[in-house]
Amino acid sequence: MSHFDRYRQPLKNARGLGSAKDGVHHFIVQRVTAVALLFLSVYFLVFVVGLIGVDYASARAAVAHPCNAVLLIAFLIASIWHGELGLQVIIEDYVHTPGLALTSRLVIKFVCVLVALASILAVVRIALGA
């Protein structure tokens, strides 16, 4: 035992060795977004069903309403974040080649961020009347 090892917990050697390279943060965020989506996905479904048959101006006005704009952006963030976490787990479980796993995780992350930014910008543009 070296001089420093007397002050180190065995936990230090175990940290970061799981397939996700981190601790329970992923698990917790997946559950927190899940609880948010229990409500937000029902809201989104009701909102979309309410848009059936309305004309373009009415659809824009519905999205532009501040309550809807805020809840839609909340739904977009929660659902895309939750989806990115879920797809990451599937990659970790089934893709066993480290290079391919890293590449596919990066691609999924980048696509998710771009989809989130594009859809949120669209809601903001509609809400601000641009």
């Binding site: 373009y56 659809a59 824009r60 999205v63 839609l72 977009l76 659902s79 895309i80 989806g83 990115e84 879920g86 797809l87 998710c112 989809v115 989130a116 594009a118 859809s119 910008l121 669209a122 809601v123 543009r125 509609i126 641009a130």
Partner: peptide, 17 residues
């Protein structure tokens, strides 16, 4: 499927904008 559906949601919102 729902993750792929997010692409359609985004496309629809961009179209509306």
């Amino acid at each position: 499927v729902l993750a792929l559906g997010s692409l359609l949601v985004a496309a629809a919102l961009v179209a509306l904008a």
